[in-house]
Nucleic acid binder design. Structure first.
Lengths: 232, 232, 232, 232
DNA sequence: GATGAATGAGGATTCATTCAT
DNA sequence: AATGAATGAATCCTCATTCAT
């Protein structure tokens, strides 16, 4: 009954640091193994703590995954915002967002998959913080389209959330092979093509004359470059 | 008339019939419980066979689900083809396909989910028969767009598979809440809106309106921006 | 993923036999270790089955204990009934039941304890089958007292269930030291003393004259012996 | 008047006060949750201390429970003694003690249960202070019976501890349903009935009535039985 | 061919207790 | 003396799959 427990290496760290260590370890393990195959014991070992310590800070394995993914979203949201401000013109902005999302998936395919597979299908998803974060994340496209509408560049009767679903749904479908480790995808080409179709689908007048359209696009890109150049 | 032989209660049915019984039972159980929570024993009981018998005809639980889903696809493919021939015009055809897919999801949300959750994310998906069936299923949109291109109604440079991803991806995103039992969706409105954006995105020219007016407007805006840039 | 499982020693026994084996093993292990410290794996090993097999027949560990204890009660109830018929006279009958219960506890202290500790304190005990069995088991004393009342030997206003509680409660308290492995108890002396007090407490007239009482008791015992002798 | 020193928020209370706080909190939590479900952290929080502090004053969780229960006994013993002196006559005294114990259980069912469930079954119970206290507590009945014997009201050959076991055992059995939150019990009726049976069981003679009549009745019945037996 | 009893691997979780600060 | 973060042991249960009958 009374066992002699040899205690070793009781490292005393501030809670914040511990949480961080655990989340870093968990992110690595979840990324590598997926949710089901990830072991709490692996995560604990990688974080340099004992399994029980994880449960001081996280309700359960699921909660740990959730917090890891939420943190990822928060990082992204914090990091990216400034970039979006720099681009002008609906087409360019749409393309920028598409491109950005494609890069996100390329950079973190495993985490992306976890969102698609583990969280989104789950009943009650809409009540989660992750859903909120995702709404914030994907709301950018809505803002852009709204602005395009306001400026008269895009049609007034555009169903905003449908456009959002179209873009993110398209990208997801486009990247499944990559998410399965079965292929890759061209970021720029895909971004151009998606932006093209959506933009044409939404703009007040379909650009009939190809020459004219291309010329305008070229000029817009030129303007962007000029702007960026002059800002330096 | 009065038969005296009491046969043993062992049903010896033709294999084909057995397989059918099992698949019908499996479809019901998978639909009701999802893959993970479905029990082989439940399926066996419902099919009026013993667990072991299922393994006579199906490699494993996964294979059983696969065959059930494949069968569902085959049914759909066989049933629907005639309908598609009836519709004319690219817009109408796109809308028809979108509407058809929305109705499929509404009719079989559980099976749809199983495809999205269980099969598509799995490594090796591209080598499965289900992938082939899905390609066939979704190829309709490609055929329609191709025809539109050939007839001159749609642009020549349309990236066909991207259009396919856009449409199916959009629909999937649009219906996730419903698939989670958290809401519903409007079939006709959604179909119209999707067809609209995609058609406009692909068609050669806007129905009417003065193209030059538009181009001039845009160039004027551009000029404004350039001016503003150079003023910094 | 596809692991080669080497199957060994697949013993195919009739369910009834398996259940019996498991219950015998479980009874031994529970008796030896108590409920908490008994391991399913120990029971399985002792029964010559794999842990999982236990769950084919028993809902969970608790259910297994319950069934073991129920079985013990059933055994006792089936075995003992005949014996009770043989004794005559309220005093003798009370003494017989007390003695019998004392012997039960001496024979199976561990099982007795499990009933006292694990089941009786549990909310909902009154709805269990074990409670029913216990009622049947302890109802004997009520029948005996009732018969004594009917024959005019015992007072008419005896609170029957209270007598039951008094007898079984007294025995339980008296044997706790033994149940704790801290002592023993005298079966016959205890039985005599309990029967005495209770009998005197219940009989129409307290037997004032000890000589008379003892004489009557001797005569009653004699009658019993004569009856039993003549029956052979 | 305005003190400028902001003391650190570390309460340094006299040990005695700390111990008291902890025991009060522990009693509340144990009462509410039982031993197993009570958490040290809950107790600490309720006591306004930190978990570690509890271990400054108590060896372990068990020890804490023990001290709480011991304290309860001490309270009772100190409080009640005077009352007992007031009652005269064996029957009245027995009834008083029974009634008192029933009220104790009604007032503190949870603590009573903890004694029955946690301490009494434990090996080594007889060596504990709690056992001593319980002996003291239950010794009252022995004193009363002894006094009755000395005064000639009760028989000389009464097995004292058995009477004690009978009374406390009876009460415990009688109140188990209540202890399980499954019912209640009548204090006065129960006390009367128990006192009645025990008193009659112990008293020298039945208050009145013709002893010989009774003896003759019994012998007549016996004769009948002998006749019936010999007829076989 | 059918049966269905037997297999067996595999891991999250709890919480009293300790001890560095 | 007080804190409270860190420890770590310990086990029940599920269910797809197999294979002796």
């Amino acid at each position: 009954m009374a066992k002699t427990r040899a205690r070793r290496n009781v490292n005393r760290l501030p809670a914040e640091r511990r949480i961080q260590d655990i989340m870093v370890a968990a992110r690595a393990v979840f990324t590598q193994k997926g949710y089901g195959d990830a072991l709490i014991s692996d995560i604990a070992e990688k974080a340099g703590v004992v399994e029980g310590s994880i449960y001081r800070f996280f309700v359960n394995k699921r909660d740990l995954l959730q917090r890891v993914v939420e943190h990822w979203y928060e990082e992204m949201l914090a990091r990216d915002d400034e970039q979006f401000a720099a681009v002008r013109g609906a087409w360019n902005q749409i393309r920028f967002i598409v491109r950005h999302h494609l890069m996100t998936i390329r950079r973190e395919p495993a985490l992306s998959r976890l969102v698609f597979q583990e969280f989104r299908p789950e009943a009650g998803y809409r009540k989660t913080r992750l859903f909120q974060l995702n709404q914030t994340y994907s709301h950018r496209i809505i803002d852009v389209v709204k602005a395009g509408v306001d400026s008269g560049e895009l049609r007034a009767d555009v169903p905003l959330t449908l456009v959002r679903d179209m873009i993110y749904g398209c990208i997801e479908h486009r990247t499944w092979a990559f998410l399965r480790n079965e292929g890759t995808f061209e970021i720029d080409e895909t971004a151009d093509a998606i932006a093209d179709i959506v933009y044409r689908g939404l703009c007040v007048r379909a650009p009939e004359d190809d020459k004219l359209t291309l010329a305008v696009q070229r000029l817009e890109k030129l303007a962007d470059r000029l702007e960026r150049t002059s800002e330096r």
